[in-house]
């Protein structure tokens, strides 16, 4: 990311030095470049990026890290070792229904049979499998929910700002009504209504999180479009006869969407935590589905003896905490970079 400087001839610029953008900066554009440079120079956000990279890797390598049982159907259903109610501690022998051994297993653990690496929950669901495949669930849910909420927010917000007037009033009132509900409680309600209609699974909770999750984006994009649509180039596009859709999609939206996109991408962590909370309460996925909140909800049966069954809380809890932490570390750094008042200061 070296920046070249060129000196203009003294009589032209009076000794003024112009900074020429580097190749990466030209490729990304000034906004994204500043963002990337800010993220890469802050140790906390680098830690966050590494953590997210780790989670992505686990998700991508799930079939290698925890190979599904051959012919066992859906790999997201956690393999179980019998049906006993008593959880087993990490390292306990895997007696029934063993999945195939991955190639790394013997070298890393020195054993030639599967053991329950992180123990089992009641019902003998293997916690290790739940966490590895749950990483996929988490990332899928986070990205899908955020993208769809963002899409709704973009449509509502840009229509509202671009057309203004009565339509703007109506849409913003509707947005406020959705915001009048406490988020998690509203999502919980809609999920419990949707479960009988759609059936159990990740669907109902995802829909509920989207329905009550788009309002923030709509408001931010609306504000940004209100400023962009008065710019000269928008006027110019109108003068040459561009229609509304074209002006909105080609000229206004691309120039206004930056901060909304950044905001949205940071919400992935929060959405995953909210989804896990719904699962934990018992309205999310089916029992035995590979999902962090679902795994940790097994602990609810043992709240009086958690010291004995610590592994049901500790491992999925650590996964959730680290996932949330990773996004927040990046989010914190990003807010500092993007806050215009903080420009030029460090560590604020």
């Amino acid at each position: 990311m070296a920046t070249e400087t060129i000196a203009l001839s003294p009589e032209l610029a009076g000794g003024l030095q112009l900074r020429m953008p580097g190749r990466l900066e030209r490729l990304l554009g000034p906004e994204w470049y500043r963002l990337l440079r800010g993220l890469m120079t802050n140790p906390l956000s680098v830690a966050g990026i590494i953590l997210i990279g780790f989670f992505l890797l686990v998700a991508a390598l799930a079939p290698v890290l925890a190979p599904p049982i051959e012919g066992g159907g859906n790999p997201y259903l956690i393999p179980r070792d019998g049906y006993g109610a008593e959880p087993k501690p990490p390292g306990a022998e895997w007696r029934r229904g063993q999945p195939p051994l991955p190639f790394w297993y013997q070298t890393v653990t020195g054993k030639d049979q599967w053991v329950h690496l992180l123990g089992t929950a009641s019902g003998q669901f293997d916690i290790y499998y739940g966490l590895v495949w749950g990483t996929r669930t988490a990332i899928f849910v986070g990205v899908a929910v955020v993208s769809l909420s963002l899409l709704i927010g973009l449509i509502v917000g840009s229509v509202s700002a671009f057309y203004g007037g009565k339509l703007d009033d109506v849409l913003m009132r509707i947005t406020e009504i959705f915001m009048a509900f406490p988020f998690l409680l509203a999502a919980l309600t809609l999920t419990s209504i949707l479960v009988p209609l759609v059936g159990r699974g990740i669907g109902p909770a995802m829909i509920a999180l989207i329905v009550f999750g788009w309002m923030g984006y709509a408001r931010v994009i609306r504000g940004d479009i209100l400023t962009v649509k008065e710019r000269d180039y928008v006027l110019a596009a109108r003068v040459i006869g561009g229609d509304d859709t074209r002006i909105l999609l080609r000229h206004v939206l691309p120039n206004a969407v930056f901060s909304t996109m950044v905001l949205a991408s940071l919400d992935v962590g929060a959405i995953v935590l909210a989804f896990a909370a719904l699962s934990f309460l018992g309205v999310g996925t089916d029992i035995g589905y590979a999902d962090w909140g679902q795994v940790i909800s097994f602990a609810r049966a043992f709240i009086l003896s958690l010291d004995q069954y610590w592994y049901i809380v500790a491992f999925p809890g650590a996964a959730l905490l680290l996932f949330g932490l990773a996004w927040n570390l990046i989010g914190d750094a990003l807010r500092d970079i993007l806050d215009p008042r903080m420009k030029g200061t460090r560590g604020a």
């Binding site: 934990f280 909140g293 940790i296 958690l306 809380v313 809890g317 905490l321 949330g324 932490l325 570390l329």
Partner: peptide, 13 residues
């Protein structure tokens, strides 16, 4: 930063 990354139920448990 740890506080707002902590899921309530994990902290509670």
């Amino acid at each position: 930063i740890i506080g707002y990354s902590f899921p309530t139920f994990v902290f509670g448990l």
